[in-house]
């Protein structure tokens, strides 16, 4: 077995706040192979975005990585210096954010921004940089890229801006793209267009993709594997079809049951009672136990995640053959 492109080992990112330490990411481990799409799913506050930011060393203060390793192609990014990280960011690992206006500078033309991104990592001429920018725009499905290069971000619609952001991410044919909710703000038809482009590109270029989202539906259609996060930990991970078909962790099961289109029309949804615990005040042991119908005394000790392909962090998992709401 070859070494994975990205290996995250026991990653811990904490935020020191006045009210106490928030363990936003609390021992997260996963692997990502070349060309693979991993969906990192969780609700607000589960730590999924901070996990993505930690990989690239983009966590803002008071957040700090306090433990674990992020091995990218064998190199630990946690201990790598800022200079080394800058050489990797944008070139070998690209990032796409939810709001493309976070990526784009509103007062510079798209051409200026894209050419600058090319020149930041490659010693090429301006004409060559411009040609590559134009090609990248064409690849994400922007019509008449030559004219659009001269435009400013505000002249694009939301979906087009996100395409420009993706085009910038693709400029250096990165090995890995970290995408943080990139289609959440977009309309359904535009989202489908973006997913289509991303799917095609990953297949053609062998780029690995970490897709951070709250939307199980998008992940189920796009990803090869999925990791479900709750309160800073991965609670279940596995090949996407296995997890959707036979969720073992009660939280995963609850999430799937909460999706309206998987329930009979008009019948009350099987929702998860209660709400996510405050990250300042996590219960002892399994963080999900206050909301879990299966919890008992054993749950006051945190279960481990087995090293299997389909693994879960639970003492009382659902049976593999018991179908979820998918029936």
């Amino acid at each position: 077995m070859t070494q994975p492109l990205l290996r995250v080992e026991n990653l811990q990112t904490h935020f020191a706040t006045r009210a106490g330490t928030v363990k936003a990411v609390n021992g997260v481990s996963f692997d990502l192979r070349r060309g693979e799409i991993l969906g990192l799913v969780g609700e607000s506050g589960s730590g999924k975005s901070v996990t993505g930011q930690s990989i690239l060393g983009l966590v803002d203060l008071p957040g700090r990585i306090v433990g674990g390793r992020v091995l990218f192609d064998g190199e630990d990014l946690v201990t790598a210096g800022e200079k080394r990280l800058r050489a990797i960011r944008g070139r070998r690992i690209a990032m796409i954010f939810q709001d493309p206006m976070m990526t784009l500078n509103p007062v510079l033309s798209v051409e200026t921004q894209m050419v600058e991104a090319v020149l930041a990592h490659d010693k090429v001429g301006r004409a060559e940089a411009r040609r590559r920018s134009r090609d990248a725009l064409g690849r994400v499905g922007i019509a008449s890229p030559d004219e659009r290069l001269a435009a400013y971000p505000h002249q694009f619609s939301g979906g087009m801006r996100q395409r420009v952001a993706i085009a910038i991410a693709l400029l250096h044919s990165p090995d890995l793209i970290l995408a943080d909710e990139p289609t959440t703000a977009l309309d359904v038809t535009i989202q489908a267009q973006i997913l289509f482009e991303v799917q095609t590109l990953c297949r053609e270029t062998g780029t690995a993709l970490l897709w951070v989202t709250h939307d199980l539906a998008v992940v189920s259609a796009l990803a090869d594997r999925v990791a479900v996060m709750y309160a800073g930990r991965i609670v279940e991970t596995g090949p996407i079809a296995d997890v959707i078909q036979a969720p073992r962790h009660p939280y995963t099961r609850g999430l799937l049951d909460s999706v309206p289109s998987r329930n009979r029309r008009g019948v009350p949804l099987r929702s998860i009672p209660g709400m996510a615990p405050s990250a300042l005040d996590l219960p002892q042991g399994c963080a999900f136990q206050p909301r879990c119908g299966r919890a008992d005394a054993a749950c006051s000790v945190m279960p481990d995640l087995a090293p299997d392909a389909h693994a879960w962090r639970c003492w009382h998992p659902h049976d593999a053959d018991a179908q979820g709401a998918a029936a």
Binding site: Q191, I244, S261, A326
Partner: peptide, 24 residues
């Protein structure tokens, strides 16, 4: 039809997205 086809659903199979072109 297009809107319903493209609405993401929790599925077991991977989908090939075949979007309608253009924007509103």
């Amino acid at each position: 039809k297009a809107l319903l086809d493209e609405a993401p659903r929790v599925t077991l199979e991977k989908r090939r997205f075949a979007p309608i072109r253009g924007e509103i």
